[in-house]
Simulated scan of single mutants.
Amino acid sequence: MIEYQWINAERAEQPLLVFLHEGLGSVSMWRDFPKRLCDALGWRGLVYSRPGYGRSTPRPPDERWAPDFMHRQAYDVLPALLAELGVDRPYWLLGHSDGGSIALLHAAKFPQRVAGAIVLAPHILVEDISVASIAKTREAYLTTDLRSKLARHHADVDSAFWGWNDIWLDPAFRDWSIENEIRDIACPLLAVQGLDDEYGTLEQIRGIARRVPQTRLLELPDCGHSPHRDRPDALISAVSTFAHTFVLSQP
């Protein structure tokens, strides 16, 4: 079972924006940002929790994710969900962190389906800063109230946390990279990152721009790993300008 939520479903003729959450995210962890952005755009939205997260089916206790877990979400899970929900026209993607990487992979694999993409603090390779911060998050989960805070958003918080944390800290994951796959992205792409991102350097989005020439970059000051929480007004303004530029230019 996959938890999902429509936004402005009555706007059937408007573009659809699909939201892809971070490595510890869920429908509820987006809070009001999807609604605020969709209202600003005048679009519809679809928010969902990946398997293992939110109110979706938890990860089985003995299941360990492989280094290609984001590929599987991009190539298999997302297409199946969209087909089940009857999405049969090109759509836009907005992904955060792991969700940003999934959005990039999906856009590259299915260029005819994706009209445009916005990625917030995506990963295209594993950096030392990412591993160090994820190791600190593991310690916080074990020793602080982080677990109880996350439990508000996940039916099985341990399923959500350890699925993500174990694979990111697995030595086999250190060589993970999608630098070659993203070269096939054909749609308009906005890549956003905070200047104070504790999970990645600006090489993540600048590396995207070198490989996908139509990429536009937004580097936000006073912003960490979550632009939609740290700088929501600036992000909504930038996404609105970017998205409407390309929607209005389409025949």
Results as ranks from 00 to 15, higher is better:
V131H: 12
V131P: 13
A132Y: 10
A132T: 15
A132K: 15
S133D: 10
I134E: 14
A135H: 11
R138V: 14
E139D: 13
E139V: 11
E139M: 07
A140S: 13
Y141S: 05
T143Y: 07
D145F: 02
D145C: 01
L146T: 03
R147S: 14
R147I: 13
S148F: 09
S148G: 14
S148D: 15
K149I: 05
A151K: 00
R152C: 12
R152F: 10
V157W: 05
N165S: 13
N165M: 03
D166G: 13
W168N: 12
W168D: 01
L169I: 06
D170I: 06
D170M: 06
P171W: 04
F173P: 02
F173G: 09
R174L: 08
D175P: 01
D175L: 11
S177E: 08
S177Q: 08
E181L: 12
E181V: 13
I182K: 05
R183A: 13
R183E: 12
R183L: 10
R183N: 10
D184V: 01
I185W: 09
A186N: 04
P188N: 09
L189W: 04
A191Q: 06
L195Q: 15
L195H: 09
D196Y: 03
T201Y: 11
T201F: 11
R206W: 12
G207K: 08
I208G: 06
A209W: 02
R210A: 14
R211S: 07
R211M: 08
R211W: 03
R211E: 06
P213F: 10
R216W: 00
L217W: 03
L217D: 05
L218M: 03
E219F: 00
P221D: 02
P221I: 00
C223K: 00
G224A: 08
R231C: 07
R231P: 06
P232H: 05
D233F: 00
D233L: 00
S237M: 05
V239I: 14
S240I: 00
S240C: 02
S240H: 03
